[in-house]
Design a protein around this nucleic acid. Structure first.
Lengths: 198, 198
DNA sequence: GTCTATATAGCGATAGAC
DNA sequence: GTCTATCGCTATATAGAC
């Protein structure tokens, strides 16, 4: 098998396992078993476990950028795009109930480990923050855009954390509904203040 | 030193280290160094690491119950008590920026480990959920009480997660202010519907 | 490029002296 | 009740055959 393909398999298995079991709790043996190669073979592709983590985060960054670009390319307005972000909680509900949010839980774990990849992982949040901020800028103007982006990110994180702890999908539905209402309220408020926008 | 005192020292050190470094990442050597005893001495007080975790969670449950009882005994109304809960984010701001929420991060880690103590850890959330639900019942009636309690818990968790990821205390202040406003809105809404309450 | 075998270190846990 | 010494296991990482 070509080197790039095996490398990619390792990244995908590690990505999945880091999410499901946590970074530290996932061993080379776990990943090797998942990929179907031997432990020793890892070091032909990566020089350390931290190296695999870097590759996993880089992969997630790429995937997230692609997703946000696609959402940007679709023929939706900013409000509909933000609604699409909120819907992640529904689309990924099963995984979130089991493992929480991939971004939030990774950042949390790396913070406790004092791991050097913290900044890279945080960049995943920044990607969403910037993208949401851009949508809010067009929706309600630039003044409160970042504040609203962070607020929405925080609400999503909180829902994921409690949904994971209580395994409660009804709660997710309830909160998603409220988030959609909150978004409508923000749009209405902006339209009152600047009737020309939108 | 009497047995109970050493045991208590171990629990306190483990509690602190599990919070700061995570459960799995904290070794017996770490705890031993912190307490000032040898590794071998542990097993006179606990039969396993999971046993220490159980004791730590039990301790946190006791402390949390005591705190909520004290808040209940104070001469505040339900609104003021809920505001006191929100203020945890300010009071513990420094720790939250560094290590996140002690309850949320523990539940998250144990979920990834598939650890049997998950249910016990979740009980910490339930303690706040029930207490907040009780306050909301008196504030706006029983129908929406649990929903509001879960909503507030989720908002707090989200703030803690993002505050930890971005190390942003200004964001915490901002969100706490919004949470207080949200609470006032809930009270006002309830007073409109049931003018006799409060 | 993938394998087996192994080095090295740290972990949780145990045994037994004091 | 606390210690030292050590077991058994698993982890990351390396060396070298194929």
């Amino acid at each position: 098998m070509p080197k790039a393909a095996t490398r990619q398999h390792i990244i995908e298995a590690a990505d999945r396992l880091f999410y499901q079991q946590g970074f530290e709790h996932t061993s080379f043996a776990d990943i090797a078993e998942n990929v179907g190669i031997s432990r020793g073979n890892f070091y032909h592709h990566f020089k350390s476990k931290d190296d695999i983590l870097d590759a996993v985060i880089a992969q997630r960054l790429t995937n997230t950028r692609d997703m946000l670009d696609q959402w940007e390319a679709a023929e939706d307005g900013p409000e509909e795009r933000i609604r699409r972000f909120i819907q992640i909680l529904i689309v990924n509900q099963t995984k979130i109930l089991r493992y929480g949010c991939p971004v939030g839980t990774l950042c949390g774990e790396l913070a406790k480990l004092g791991h050097p990849a913290q900044a890279e992982a945080r960049e995943l949040f920044t990607l969403f923050r910037t993208w949401l901020g851009y949508q809010f800028t067009r929706l309600v103007g630039p003044d409160q855009a970042d504040e609203l982006a962070m607020h929405l990110l925080a609400r999503s994180q909180g829902v994921a954390t409690l949904a994971n702890a209580f395994h409660d999908e009804f709660f997710v539905d309830q909160e998603v509904k409220q988030l959609c209402e909150w978004l409508s309220t923000q749009v209405a408020k902006a339209n009152l203040e600047h009737p020309t926008v939108t």
